[in-house]
């Protein structure tokens, strides 16, 4: 087990290393990084000071070490637009994004769990077809368009829900629906649960439970579902990072003040330090959750560890 964790940890660090090289190298491809990192009207003495901080007159490997050092101190630079530390902006916005993601995951599970189970127990019934159609539509409809259509219907035509902003729980409804119902999340959970339920329902222990005289409801919803859920939980864990990156689109549509919206604004203003901060933060969180899920899964299912 320790070897397994160590292996995965090294792998995650390697990925983090590649991402840091990426971020570091990309800005140096543009010529003078100061042009991207500072406002156009930055005074010469500021340019000189930041240039020294980045060690621009030193060799590249030395610059990279400096970059890593400031990262390890949590120093991600200063936003060009707001002139505030990037770390502060991220800390302020992240909770909003997590709220949105949490609500979406709950919504997806509320819909996908019953749908996936029913689809598996009554293969080819109406519900099975509905589940598969929903999965197909979910992965074919882009979130940003879905969000705009939801606004047009629920906010403009029906005037039921607010179109954007964040001033109370009702503001969470449309973004949550958009993030949860469209894209691969719902489709993935329904398909995975259906497939894994079909497999589990065919296993010996489920047959044995039936022979033992356990009621059908208990067989399906207790005995089978419990094991069928393991791959689903893994999927949701892995999907967390993808959702976090996907908030860019949804938060932009709904003017939701999270890190995704922050990234979008940074693109509009060409605010390099902010976008770099968001990329590093999201990558870090993604790697951490993936690692956690892997270790947890390896713990629950020893076959993975030695596989």
């Amino acid at each position: 087990m320790q070897r397994f964790i160590a292996g995965r940890l090294i792998q995650s660090l390697l990925t983090l290393f590649i991402i840091s090289l990426f971020v570091f190298g990309l800005v140096r491809l543009t010529g003078n990084p100061l042009d991207v990192m500072l406002p156009i009207d930055a005074p010469p003495d500021l340019r000189q000071r930041v240039g020294q901080q980045l060690g621009l007159d030193r060799p590249l490997h030395f610059q990279y070490l400096l970059f890593l050092r400031s990262l390890s101190h949590g120093d991600l630079g200063t936003s060009i637009r707001t002139r505030r530390p990037v770390t502060e902006l991220l800390a302020q916005r992240l909770p909003n994004s997590l709220k949105l993601i949490g609500a979406s995951i709950v919504l997806v599970l509320l819909i996908a769990l019953p749908l996936g189970v029913i689809a598996a127990t009554r293969k080819d019934s109406f519900w099975d077809v509905a589940a598969r159609t929903l999965a197909l539509l979910g992965q074919s409809i882009p979130t940003f368009w879905a969000g705009i259509i939801l606004i047009a219907v629920f906010a403009v035509r029906l005037d039921l829900l607010p179109a954007g902003g964040d001033q109370g729980p009702q503001y969470l409804v449309l973004p949550t629906m958009t993030l949860g119902l469209f894209g691969f999340m719902l489709a993935g959970v329904v398909r995975l649960l259906r497939a894994s339920m079909l497999e589990v329902l065919d296993s010996d222990y489920v047959k044995f439970a039936r022979i033992k005289g356990v009621g059908e409801l208990a067989v399906v919803w207790k005995h089978a579902l419990k094991n069928a859920l393991i791959p689903v939980i893994t999927f949701v864990g892995f999907y967390f990072g993808i959702l976090l990156a996907g908030t860019v689109v949804v938060e932009t549509v709904f003017a939701w003040p999270g890190i995704g919206r922050l990234a979008y604004e940074a693109v509009q203003w060409r605010d390099y330090p902010v976008i770099q901060g968001v990329v590093l933060l999201v990558s870090g969180i993604t790697l951490a959750t993936n690692l956690l899920v892997d270790v947890l899964y390896g713990y629950l299912d020893p076959r993975i560890r030695y596989g």
């Binding site: 990426f22 971020v23 990309l26 990072g241 993808i242 976090l244 990156a245 996907g246 860019v248 689109v249 990234a263 979008y264 940074a266 693109v267 976008i275 770099q276 968001v278 990329v279 999201v282 990558s283 993604t286």
Partner: peptide
Amino acid sequence: PIILIALL
């Protein structure tokens, strides 16, 4: 995070 890398 591919969308974010593309933004970068």
